[in-house]
Design a protein around this nucleic acid. Structure first.
Lengths: 237, 237
DNA sequence: GACGATCATAGGTACCAACCAATATGGGAA
DNA sequence: TTCCCATATTGGTTGGTACCTATGATCGTC
């Protein structure tokens, strides 16, 4: 049984040590952390790189590394609905609306990079948070890669099911976010007035090799859901 | 004047070399790149790290590094409206609606972490793309940090103005995205039917020290604008 | 007291060397 | 022919070292 990398362990340790400190508190210097924890400075920098990327610390050359101010928004990560809701201190649940196998069709086929005539499993679910409707979710997966999925228990985390039962790991996803006017049936299912707006998130999940595994359209209630994230200046290509 | 780091130069070189290759084409091994370009493997890995983060390549341990499939969505970056529109091949423009100095008030003061009684510069602009309305933007900045801003030329890029004239560099920003129902005046300004939905992006721009510099609320037309980005699985904290 | 040069110290870049872990492949066994 | 396993190869992790550059406090000068 292998442990996790040292920089990962160090990252956790530093995160724990920082927990109580007020913002802008300086961390020990890289060289000091290196000496104190008995690891090389490379390893320390790897840990700090991760913390910086996560927005937990900021670094200023010549000055030091500092605890970042507590932020409202966490960094954007690829999470399942279940994880997402738990992060928001809400209890996730699910109501299956439909599940079955259909022909892909042009649009879905394009997203999944398969033949339009190929079969896909389509699963529609109403997802609840603390018992109240939060969003409508329709997932498409190539039937070939998930045999028997439509007959399995679809009340929980789909990502987990894909991982455990079918060996599919989603490593990244492309998302397109739009505001939309909800249709009548959609408002009814979500329990909001007709004419309300919603947040539509279209996602294509990719495996480690950047090959499409799932295409999902999620329609969130505008009054209960928002998307929070941090963006950073990057080198212009 | 110093040149750029080697890994940055190497990143550009690799990006150029990859340009014509079809997806999933393997790159040379790290050791080979290292030898061929006369740099250490660490430097190669730094360059590849950047390319991977940008979604240009993907790596599989034991297999190699490969050109990532062309993606619809670019990685999410901190861009100004002007940059954003040019990325979408639209011509940005601006119509100043209002500019002046007011007391911060509780909400804005909270976002900017200043005293509610302190003065802030408020600038409201209607932003156009290819001549048609795209969004309504209202910016708040601490008056103390941007003396005389309200009297300057506000038709172009605000970020550039802040950088050049006031030495303020926005290094990162926190954003909250919601779908909203547009108010009457808003729909009128944006030129969309009453009752349309819009995408509201609330942003707090931070400088290098993670200290708030600007608070902006932008209201996009739902029919012309979407947000595209890639998310990756990260270690759970 | 105000200002500017000096310098210790912080993070940033770059190099080398070694070993670990996942992978793909080819050769040998069934 | 098929399957499995040893193994070479790839990226991943860790250690160590040296030097560069930005920062900020110190100290001297005006």
């Amino acid at each position: 049984m292998a442990g996790q990398p040292k920089y990962e362990e160090l990252r956790m340790t530093l995160l724990a040590e920082m927990a109580g400190s007020p913002p802008h508190t300086p961390l020990p210097t890289e060289r000091e952390i290196s000496a104190r924890h008995g690891v090389s400075r490379n390893t320390v920098r790897q840990a700090l790189d991760a913390l910086e990327a996560a927005g937990a610390v900021y670094r200023v050359q010549g000055a030091g590394t500092f605890v970042a101010p507590a932020v409202v928004s966490k960094s954007l990560a690829l999470t399942s609905f279940s994880e997402d809701m738990r992060d928001r201190d809400l209890e996730p649940a699910s109501r299956l609306l439909a599940a079955g196998t259909v022909r892909a069709g042009r649009q879905v086929a394009g997203l999944l990079e398969i033949d339009p005539e190929a079969e896909v499993v389509r699963v529609s679910r109403l997802r609840l948070a603390d018992g109240a409707p939060m969003c409508l979710e329709t997932v498409h997966l190539p039937a070939q890669r998930v045999p028997g999925l439509a007959e399995e228990d679809l009340s929980g985390s789909l990502y987990e099911l894909l991982s455990v039962r079918h060996g599919l790991e989603i490593g990244s996803a492309e998302q397109i976010v739009r505001a939309v006017d909800l249709a009548e049936t959609e408002s009814a299912l979500l329990g909001v007035p007709v004419g309300s707006s919603g947040l539509r998130v279209q996602r294509v999940g990719l495996d480690r090799r950047e090959s499409p595994v799932e295409a999902t359209t999620t329609l969130y209630r505008a009054d209960r859901y928002d998307i929070r994230f941090t963006v950073r200046r990057t080198a212009r290509s």
